[in-house]
């Protein structure tokens, strides 16, 4: 089984701890994981803003970078949704525009091999107890892509429920969008901020020490809002919680 990590551009540049956590976790579970350096970005921001033609080179790059791997694992629900839902559309549109089947074939090749981290753990490895230890109160925000596009369902919560020491607090209004939405966050900053403030308030009201998601882009917005509002709740990617063990506990900055 050849497994590649698609760390994503956001994690690579801003949240390397998340990428390291995925590597640590997968290796602990006996999975040998590669990091093909030709990878960069899935093209989600470009595509969702309307720049489909600017996205196409990134689709090709993704396919080249991960050629030959059985599984492509990524700690980002929205990037998986981009590949799964939109790569086929990009292929279809290119074909309809008379530019051949190349992109459609790429989509057909990468879509079945691309997994969000919790899908890979639960569906491919068949584990829900990854031997993690995280002695904090945590609330889980199920991000729109994870919840509605990928249908992750109970996978993340199942994984969290087996983490030793962790107390899971239910998040009111969990299924509501946090307001990030990629370029939406700056194009419609007022609405985005209003949504973020409501999400942050719900998170703070749980009294949890940490809020976790399967996506650091939402977490960047949520964490940025929480910090500006002076909240004590820290943003943590789910992978970092699952990587933490009693021998090597992980404590993000400032967590209580």
């Amino acid at each position: 089984m050849r497994v590649a990590l698609f760390v994503t551009c956001v994690n690579d540049t801003l949240y390397p701890d998340t990428g390291r956590a995925v590597v640590t976790l997968l290796e602990r579970l006996g999975v040998e994981v590669d990091f093909p350096a030709a990878q960069t970005c899935c093209g989600q921001a470009q595509f969702n803003t309307g720049y489909r033609y600017e996205t196409e080179p990134l689709v090709r790059r993704y396919a080249r970078a991960f050629e030959g791997y059985d599984h492509i694992v990524t700690p980002s629900g929205s990037c998986v949704a981009m590949v799964r839902d939109n790569y086929p559309r990009i292929g279809e549109k290119a074909a309809a525009e008379g530019r051949g089947d190349e992109l459609a074939e790429i989509a057909a090749s990468v879509v079945p091999r691309t997994y969000e981290l919790t899908e890979f753990l639960v569906d491919v490895l068949g584990v829900t107890d990854v031997g993690a230890y995280f002695p904090h109160t945590v609330t889980y925000h199920p991000t729109c892509h994870g919840l509605r596009m990928l249908g992750l369902g109970r996978r993340p919560v199942e994984l969290l429920s087996h983490v030793k020491g962790l107390e899971l607090r239910e998040l009111p209004g969990a299924d509501e969008c946090c307001g990030f939405g990629g370029t939406f966050a700056v194009k419609n900053a007022a609405v985005s901020a209003a949504m973020g403030a409501d999400k942050a308030r719900h998170i703070s009201e749980t009294g949890a020490s940490a809020v976790c998601t399967v996506d650091n882009s939402c977490l960047m917005h949520i964490g940025g809002t929480l910090a500006r509002l002076g909240s004590q709740t820290r943003p943590v990617h789910l992978a970092e919680i699952l990587a933490s063990t009693e021998e090597h506990p992980y404590a993000p900055g400032g967590i209580r």
Partner: peptide, 12 residues
């Protein structure tokens, strides 16, 4: 538009 209501993440 971002920083009016949100902190920017620290670059590692």
């Amino acid at each position: 538009a971002w920083t009016e209501t949100r902190e920017v993440p620290a670059v590692p």
